[in-house]
Every structure is written in structure tokens, then in C-alpha cells.
Write a protein that binds this DNA or RNA. Structure first.
Lengths: 115, 115
DNA sequence: CCTATGTATGAATATCTATTCATATATAGG
DNA sequence: CCTATATATGAATAGATATTCATACATAGG
């Protein structure tokens, strides 16, 4: 399977980069991964990750704006989950990739240097 | 198809985030997209993108270190291409996602605000 | 109402990073 | 060798951003 020549508009490229960028922060990524399987209230996310409620909230705001997650009120709590199936798939794919790579290689610093 | 509960080590999570982060810069992403289909010398990449040779070179260095691209000497030129099939797949998936989303929705600012 | 709980938000900051400019390195050809 | 071409690299900087702290907002329950 070879790659089709894909031509993205500047807008599409920018959106794509923005999505990558948002997932590119370890704290935010952890949040997203935590929401892959279930809807979780903010406080619980913070607790599980060992991060402050404020920090988690700030990140959720960004993830929400990018439609990576969605929220729903449940009494006093606000439960967050992955926005849709599609986003979940994309992230799963990437996770699978990294997991594989981690399994396949165990490089020395020298090898990385020469990569 | 539901998501399996995936548990990533901190190292894996960091690597995953790092990969996302590198793709999260528009300039770098454009470079990567340009290398999906063929091996291209540095100067040509810069020319096509309208970016400076220096900037492209700096970005290629980062992409190389992360094994997102690889290089090969061809006379005086150094040709860069996507590191492997796997990386290409991951990017293609994400591109497909964004392309779909762009097709499906055309949101007002208000809708985005309330997302 | 008043309070407690859960969440969001704004300001401040220390850190990071993308970009530019100048320059070094490497290779091919005469 | 000497020059031209292609690429890499280092320093400097302007701008972005992750995090913290303090505080505001919203809701449920008594």
C-alpha cells in the first residue's frame, strides 16, 4: 500500500498541526488517554494524574475548544470524555504505533545520535 | 469496536507526546507531509514551502532524532523521506480524520464557543 | 439563604521554542 | 587545491505556553 498524494489546504494543515500540538503536551495527553475508556469528572482526573484541579481544568478547556473532548454535567460534577469515536481511533492508532516501536527497539544513545 | 483499556508507561506516554509535539508545529508538519510520497533534498523542501534552508534544516534535525524521517546522501544533496511505513500510516490516519471533519462540519464561532 | 463542593478563570511567570542571521562543514568538479 | 554548491550548526531573540496561585462561578443540600 503506497501513499496517495494528499494535498491539504493551509487551513487543514493548520488544524491538523493544532490537533497534534494539543496532544503533544504530556499532561494533556495523559488527560486524553484517561478519557478514552470512560467519562470522568474533573476532580477525579486531577486526582488520578496527581495534577492540580486548576491545571486540569485549563487543559480541558483547550481540548474542549479543539473538540477533542466533550463534557456533560452530572449533578455538581462535570464529566469529560473523548469527543467522538474518530478521535479515539486516531489516538489508539498512534498509541499502537508507539507501543510497537517500544517493543521493537531498544536503542543506545549512540544509535539515536546517528539516526 | 470499543477501546481496550490501554495502560502506557510514563516513558511511552512521553514518547507519544513527543511525537505529537513534533508534528504539532505547522512548519514541521508541512515538511513531513512533503516527504510522505517521495524523498526530497533539503533545498527543494525549503523552496517548495517558501521557508529558509536553515529553518528546514533545524526542523529536519528534530524530526530525524525522533525517527520520523530518515536521510540519505545523493551526491551533494541529502534526501529526506519518512522514516518508515508505520509513521506514514499514522500521519495518513490523522490527515484522513481532519479531512473528514473539515468536510462534515462548518461551524459558526458560536458553536465552537459552546463546544 | 447559607454553606460546601466542584469547576472555571484571570493574572503572573518561568520556561521553552520557532525563527533568523551568520558561519561552519562537506562534497563535487575543474 | 580552489571554488561553488548543498547542508548543518550555533547564538540570539521574540513570542508562545505550561504551571501556579488566588479567586470567581455554579450547583446541591440543609
Amino acid at each position: 500500500m503506497t501513499q496517495p498524494i494528499l494535498q491539504l489546504s493551509d487551513d487543514q494543515t493548520a488544524d491538523l498541526a493544532e490537533m497534534f500540538r494539543l496532544l503533544g503536551d504530556p499532561t494533556r495527553l495523559k488527560i486524553v488517554l484517561a478519557l478514552l475508556d470512560e467519562a470522568v469528572p474533573v476532580g477525579t482526573i486531577a486526582e488520578r494524574m496527581g495534577a492540580s484541579q486548576s491545571l486540569v481544568s485549563h487543559h480541558l478547556r483547550l481540548l474542549r475548544a479543539a473538540r477533542i473532548v466533550r463534557h456533560e454535567r452530572k449533578g455538581r460534577e462535570i464529566h469529560y470524555r473523548i469527543h467522538d469515536h474518530h478521535v479515539a481511533c486516531v489516538i489508539d492508532d498512534m498509541v499502537a504505533h508507539v507501543a510497537e516501536v517500544h517493543e521493537a527497539r531498544s536503542l543506545t544513545a549512540q544509535e539515536v545520535e546517528n539516526a
